[in-house]
Design a binder for these strands. Structure first.
Lengths: 246, 246
DNA sequence: AAGTGGTCTAGACCACGCG
DNA sequence: GCGTGGTCTAGACCACTTC
């Protein structure tokens, strides 16, 4: 049950040491070099072996504990979680909430307009009702099959949107390129039945079950920069997440 | 924009200092004492003021950053997130995945039996096909209205289940009382249409949209201890989560 | 140049589980 | 009693932003 484990870190890399270690451990776990149930050596030994301090070693392991790959028990030790841990929805990534299951994703813009914000949108974006916002509707498809219907609102003051680049780069990339930083997103996930329009656009029967998601994204100082409502075909999409007890 | 903020910690409490600080800050934010957009004093000053070391102060703030209440920016400072942060599904809690929206929850056991594990269940629980597992089906209601249909499997080797205590205490409490520790859960959330039986039990029309959730829970050494599939009425239930960029 | 958060170290002591 | 993870300290240097 001991962990031989050939790890190495580059102290001159700009990548933080704890991140290098976490990455190396994660790779070892995902490749099966550290099979489920393996007991790791204790933190002090591991730290010494890599010429790291214990806090740095711990910080690396903390990440993997939160990601659900390791389990720690005081007085006992640390083990690799014993089950086929499917790659979970990476909570670290806001970049793309679509798992590209092999296919090539494309996006079509159905509508793009500057409109005055209604009360609810203004509230969500921290604006006054009537302030101008972009309102956009898009369909995302993989392999030609429609998968998601996305409706979003963005304050006009934050960036400029145009149809072509939206389809090319995506909303987030476009906004990021104009200096918007995404830091946080609050999401709500539920289920709704497809109405006539949604059904037609997604290629399902009216009444079909859809995964519904509403989101508000905030920038690096906590200001709302985007809000939206997405629906996904329930037969082709789901969210994964890992809960950790602490 | 300065933060006066009257904080205090008890160095003799068994509660970790970083947790006391995080709790105090969270309370101050949720009560509005620290309104959205407030800039906090820098970490060193805050640490000094509480007679704490900077790492301890940082650890407290890390928690709130992950929870989506604070936002940090290098070279600039730390601010309270600027939006009505609704109380999010506490990722820290596995105890109850139901938001008791005022109502009083009750649970009815529809079925409880010891059966040999089928292939899929055995796989999920790390058993061999044919090993004995409890199979249980329950309906959870609030205010007399059915809300969720829960189907679960538990290895018989881990605990003993009986109908009465299941209804009284719930599955997790019952297992915990028998020494099972819950550490991790992997969940998948999607949408399905209600079949005839689900519709009847939940009091909705067949075909109605349901939130579907499958979960496998692991104990403190990463062994699977429970797996299950729940469906919730889509018109009464949703999941909330906060994503953080790091 | 000054101020901020980001990282890292080298210790220390404690609480818990186990033999 | 011993080994483990859990917590905490008092520094240090760096990277980045702002003025």
């Amino acid at each position: 049950m001991a962990a031989p484990l050939r790890l190495a870190v580059d102290k001159n890399s700009p990548v933080p040491l704890y991140h290098q270690v976490a990455q190396a451990l994660e790779d070892a776990i995902r490749t099966g070099e550290l099979p489920p149930g393996t007991k790791l050596d204790n933190e002090i030994d591991l730290a010494n072996r890599l010429n790291l301090s214990r806090p740095t070693m711990r910080k690396a392991m903390d990440q993997l504990v939160r990601a659900g790959l390791l389990v720690r028990k005081r007085g006992v030790g640390t083990q690799v979680v014993g089950s086929q841990v499917r790659r979970s929805l990476e909570l670290s990534s806001l970049h793309d909430d679509l798992r590209s299951s092999g296919g090539s994703p494309t996006t079509a813009v159905l509508g793009l307009a500057r409109v005055p914000a209604d009360e609810e949108t203004a509230q969500l974006l921290g604006l006054s009702p009537g302030d101008e916002v972009y309102h956009l509707r898009r369909v995302r498809s993989t392999d030609g099959e429609p998968l998601a219907l996305m409706e979003n609102w963005v304050p006009c003051s934050r960036c400029e949107l145009d149809r072509e680049r939206l389809e090319q780069d995506g909303l987030y990339a476009l906004m990021r390129a104009q200096g918007v930083t995404f830091q946080l997103a609050h999401q709500r996930v539920g289920a709704v039945a497809a109405d006539e329009e949604q059904a037609a656009l997604l290629g399902v029967e009216p009444g079909a079950a859809l995964v519904s998601m509403t989101r508000t994204a905030l920038d690096d100082v906590g200001r709302p920069v985007e809000t939206g409502h997405h629906v996904y075909r329930g037969d082709k999409y789901s969210f994964e997440l890992t809960l950790v007890q602490h």
